[in-house]
Each structure stands twice: as structure tokens, then as C-alpha cells.
């Protein structure tokens, strides 16, 4: 870093911090899908379609998650945020 740089930088948020935050989100998302069966994305889509028959919701209001707790127990967790009336 030269003398001139001392007057210029260090005002903005560091881009490394942005990189870390973005990565933490995408990696958490990736890990949620890891180990899920092949039919999972389609099943998730169909569950959303069924709910949509009755309530108007967008895709980000539904979270479907599969947790492998131990060897012979998997939990399918469905979270729907219903819109305000």
C-alpha cells in the first residue's frame, strides 16, 4: 500500500465481509438439500401447488425441510407463512 492509498480507502464495508455473508447463506441452503432423496424437489413443488389451491402464497412463504435425525428416523418439516387477511 502506498502513501496515497492511506488517504483513499477504508471508508466502505470490506468486500470480504460481504463475501462471507453471502457464502454462509448459500452454503446453508446447499447443505439443506444435501442427502435429500431425488424426488424431493418435485415433492416440494407439489406440496406448494396443493396449498395454493386454497391460499394464495408465494414460494418463499413455504419452507420444506428434511432432517435426518438418526439412522432410521427422518423428519419432514413443513412451514407455511399464511398471508395477513
Amino acid at each position: 500500500m502506498s502513501l496515497l492509498d492511506y488517504f483513499r480507502s477504508n471508508k466502505k464495508t470490506s468486500t470480504a465481509v460481504m463475501a462471507k455473508e453471502r457464502l454462509q447463506i448459500i452454503v446453508a441452503h446447499q447443505r439443506g438439500e444435501r442427502g435429500a432423496p431425488d424426488y424431493f424437489p418435485q415433492m416440494k413443488q407439489e406440496i406448494i401447488e396443493v396449498i395454493r389451491k386454497y391460499v394464495q402464497i408465494s414460494e418463499d412463504q413455504v419452507s420444506v425441510q428434511l432432517d435426518q435425525n438418526d439412522d432410521n428416523l427422518s423428519v419432514l418439516e413443513l412451514n407455511v407463512t399464511l398471508p395477513d387477511r
Binding site: 500500500m1 480507502s9 470490506s14 468486500t15 470480504a16 465481509v17 463475501a19 462471507k20 457464502l23
Partner: peptide
């Protein structure tokens, strides 16, 4: 570059 905040650190 890590020191100037342009690169992810080992810890990150």
C-alpha cells in the same frame, strides 16, 4: 489483501 479486507481470511 486479507488485511485490507478484500479477501476472505483463513478463519473465514
Amino acid at each position: 489483501r486479507v488485511k485490507s479486507g478484500e479477501m476472505l481470511s483463513v478463519e473465514d
